[in-house]
Structures are given as structure tokens and as C-alpha cells.
Amino acid sequence: MNALDLHADPADIACALVDIPSVSGSEAAIADAVQDALSQQKHLEVVRNGDAVLARTNLGRPSRVILAGHLDTVPVNDNLPLRRDGDVLHGLGTVDMKGGDAVFLHLAATVTEPDYDLTFVFYDCEEVEAARNGLGRIERELPDWLRGDLAIVGEPSNAVIEAGCQGTMRIEVRCGGRRAHTARAWMGVNAIHALTEPLRRLAEYRAREVEIDGLTYREGLQAVRVAGGVAGNVVPDEAVLAINFRFAPDRTAEQAEEHLRQVFDGLDLSVVDCAAGALPGLSAPTAAALVEAAGGQAAAKLGWTDVARFAALGTPAVNFGPGDPTLAHTREEHVSSTEIRRVAQALRDFLGK
């Protein structure tokens, strides 16, 4: 494997990263390459934590900016090795998120006299269950490395600042009944039929649109799975409706749960999973300066990302990276080299030389 040249065109760095397979749980090779490349930069302190690599400046600046990107990808889907078609890079991870990683690595090597102290976090296992996410491990084992005045997560955002993120909650509504032979159905109680009531409430539900810091967040409440049934000739005695709630970041996780218990009052509801959202934090001076450097426009992040982890630590956080997020996790992932360079230049203008 060739060494990464962090002084090269960031689009070329992205190509090199894509051609190092790094499906979640198998990031050792790419972490080795990143560690080797960052260790060559004499102005950086570099540490390894599992298959995460962290680097930072210690210049005594009054503010610190964190730039964070995950190294892992979803499983390969006949989209490796990388294919370059003129300006466009095709392949697994070009969008999610080795294009963003390439930008951060290039800046780590070439921005040596920034206006802020900088911390770079390249971490593992973002694409799998939250318990394995490398940021969580870093928070437990190296918490000082995640302290800053602004965090920039390089998730694909079409090269537009996407601020904050929605919270997400998964619940189950469970309906009970009584089994009976379908030839004597009147002797039973059909649990699947009982789902009519929660489904009616979902159909009549009107989701909020919330404006925060000038950005509009749209909530959503959707049934995502129905489970039930015993056999083709048995009246079912249990049915479960799985529901996903995407909530605006002005609600806490506790408030989101309370809202759902009101919506489904009288029904058997249990929370399966929850991750709080993140307020945009664009009123923070450092965040406002970034928005200005990126063209003056920002959008609400409709989805959940690791910005929420930084927000929970009290650090304003935004998503800013090259690539169309709707292409993430698809076989057709591709990103423009021009967009990678544009994000790199915007961040260079913000960070200083």
C-alpha cells in the first residue's frame, strides 16, 4: 500500500482512501495509513485509539476547532475499486465519507498557522450500532480530545453547512388478543385488528415544522414495521407496530417520549431506541464565522449524525462535507473532485493559513 501524500490534491487523497477497504470493524489498514501520514507532520501531536487516529495542534490559540470524520464504510456492493470519470470519483466511500476525510487530512498537513487550534478525529465504526462508535470510546478514554469551541463533522452535505440534527426515537406499540381457531373466530380477539387504532392515530397525525436559528426542521412520525400472526388458521393474540419518530432538536429525548405517550395514550408503548438531536448553535461566534466562509448559507440537517455527540458535550457542531447525502450507502456513490476542492478551500478560508 502506497503512503498517503497529504500535500496532494485532496481529490487525489480521496482516491487513495477509497481504494483502502474499510468496512466497519475492519478499519486497521486505513487507520495505519492515516496514522503514518499524520505522524509525518511535525506540527501535530498524534495518538492512536483502537482504529481511530487523532491529531491536534497546540499553538495556544484562544479557540479550538474540531474536524471529525469516520473512516469506515458500509459493506462493499460491487463498487470497488475506485473509478475516475473526468471530474467525478465513483466508488464506495466517495460520499460517505472519504471525500470529507480527504479534505480534513489535507488541511491537517497544509494549514500550519491557523487562527484556531485544531483537533482532527478520524474514527471507526460509525456505520454500525451506536455502542461500537469510535467517538463514544474516545469520549470515555480520551475526553480532552473532544473539547472545543466548534466541531465540524465531514458528513456529505452538498458542500453546504448543515447545522444541528434531528433526534430519532423508535417505539413499539403492542396490542394483545386471544387465540382461537379461525373456524371459531368469535371465540378469540384478533390482535392484528386492534392495530387499527394506533394506525388511525398515525394517519391523522400532523407533524410540526420548527424554525430554530432561521433553519426549518420538519418532524416525522411513521410506521416502519408490523409484526404478528401465529398460523394461517389461528386468530393472533399479539401484534406489534414499530414506529419511528424524527423530532426537531428543540425537544429533548424525554420530551419526545412524553409527546408520543400522549399521541398513543391508552396503548401499550415501549421505547426501543433513542438518540437526542442537536441544536444548530449558529449564534456561536466561531460557527457564524464558518457559515460566512462557506458562502453565508446554512440548512437544517434532516437526519441524525454525530454532531449530536458533540452537542451533548456542549460544543456547537455542524455537518460540512462534499457529496450528495442521498447517494450514501448506494451502489452509485460518486462525488465531484471540484466539490471536494471547494469544501477544502472554504475551510482553509475559515481556519486561516
Rank of each mutant, 00 (worst) to 15 (best):
H7G: 15
I13L: 08
C15K: 13
I20D: 00
I20G: 02
D32Q: 13
N49R: 15
N49F: 12
L59N: 15
G60K: 14
S63L: 14
H70S: 00
N79S: 11
L80S: 14
L82P: 12
R83I: 06
D87T: 04
H90A: 09
G91F: 10
V103D: 06
F104M: 14
D115R: 14
C125F: 12
E129F: 15
A131S: 13
R132Q: 15
N133H: 14
L135D: 00
L135M: 03
L142Y: 14
G148P: 02
D149P: 02
V160F: 07
V160W: 05
T168H: 06
E172Y: 03
V173P: 06
R174M: 12
A180M: 13
G188R: 15
R200W: 04
L202M: 03
G214F: 08
L215R: 05
V224D: 09
E238S: 13
I243V: 14
F247V: 01
D250F: 02
D250W: 03
R251Q: 12
E254S: 09
F264M: 08
F264I: 11
L267I: 02
S270H: 07
G277F: 05
G277C: 10
P280R: 07
S283A: 14
A287G: 11
G295V: 05
A299G: 14
A300C: 01
W304N: 08
T315G: 01
G323W: 10
D324A: 14
E332Q: 15
E333W: 09
H334L: 08
S337G: 13
E339V: 06
I340A: 08
V343W: 09
A344Q: 11
A346P: 02
K353E: 13
